[in-house]
Write a protein that binds this DNA or RNA. Sequence first.
DNA 1: ATCCTACAATGGACAATGTCTAAGTCAAGC
DNA 2: GCTTGACTTAGACATTGTCCATTGTAGGAT
Lengths: 139, 139
Amino acid sequence: MSDLLERLRGRGWRMTAQRRVVAEVLDGDHVHLTADEVHARAVDKLPEISRATVYNTLGEMVSLGEVLEVSTDRRAKRYDPNAHRPHHHLICGRCGAIRDVHPAGNPLADLPAEERYGFTVSGVEVTYRGLCPSCAAAA
Amino acid sequence: MSDLLERLRGRGWRMTAQRRVVAEVLDGDHVHLTADEVHARAVDKLPEISRATVYNTLGEMVSLGEVLEVSTDRRAKRYDPNAHRPHHHLICGRCGAIRDVHPAGNPLADLPAEERYGFTVSGVEVTYRGLCPSCAAAA
DNA sequence: ATCCTACAATGGACAATGTCTAAGTCAAGC
DNA sequence: GCTTGACTTAGACATTGTCCATTGTAGGAT
C-alpha cells in the first residue's frame, strides 16, 4: 500500500476519499505530474472530486514535506512524491520530460559566506537542462 | 548609455521608442523585474505602451540571449539583464528578493554520464533558497 | 524630402493556472 | 448515533501570459 498514505495518517490527517485518491495518484509510477494531471487521474477514480480539493491537498502535502513542488518551466508546477531522497532534476527543454538525478558535489558548500549577503540559506535546487534522446533525434 | 541597447542595435533590430524604453528599464539598477513590473516602469516613460509589446519585447530579448528568464517561484517569470556573466540565484522564500551569486564548483561536471540518461545536457541552473536578513529578523 | 513596405505596436479577447469563498458534507470522537 | 469542526464543492475571481486583426511607423528606396 501507499507509504505516503501511511505517513499522512500518522500525522493526524483526517482521511477522506479525496485525499486517499490524490495520495494514490502520486504514489503511482507516473511521477512529476502537474496539478491538473493529478486532478485528471483522480477524477478517473473519484469522478466528483473537485479541482480546488486537489490543489488544497497537494498544497498540504507540500507543507508537510511529504511532496516536493518542482517549478521547471513557465507552465504549471509539478509535484514530486520522492521527497525523502534528496535529488535534483534533468529536464528536456523540448518535450518537458523530467528525470531525477543525483549529481556529485555539494552545492550548498560551494556558496561562500561572502556570497550569502546575510541570508539564512536553507536549501538549493539544481536543474539541468538539455534534450532527451528522442527530442535530440527529432531535432 | 545602454550597453543592452547598443548590442540590440548591432543585431539589426528596428529601434522603436517602445523597445528603447524596455531596454532602458532593464538596464536600470532594479534587476530581476517581472514582466508587469517592467511594463509599469515603461508606462512611466511612455504612457501608451501596451502590455503585449512589453511581453513581446522581453521574449525577443530572451531569444537573442541578451536577457535571461528566471522562473523562481509560482509567481511571474523575472527578467535578468545580466546575461553575459554566468551566475546563479539566491532567493528569499518570504519576500521574493533575488541576489545574483557566484558559487564555486562546476555543477555540470558533477553530473556523471550514467546519470544523464542519454540527454544532451546544455546548461544548469542553481537556485539557493533561504531568508533575507530583514525577513529573518521579522520571523 | 517623400513614399513604400515589412515589421512593430496596439488593445482586447482568450487561455492557463491558481486562489478564494460560502454553503453543504462527512470523519472521528464522544 | 450525535456533534462538531475540518473537509469538499462549484464556481467566481485573480494573475500571468498569448493571440490576432488592425493600425502605426522605421528605415531603405526613390
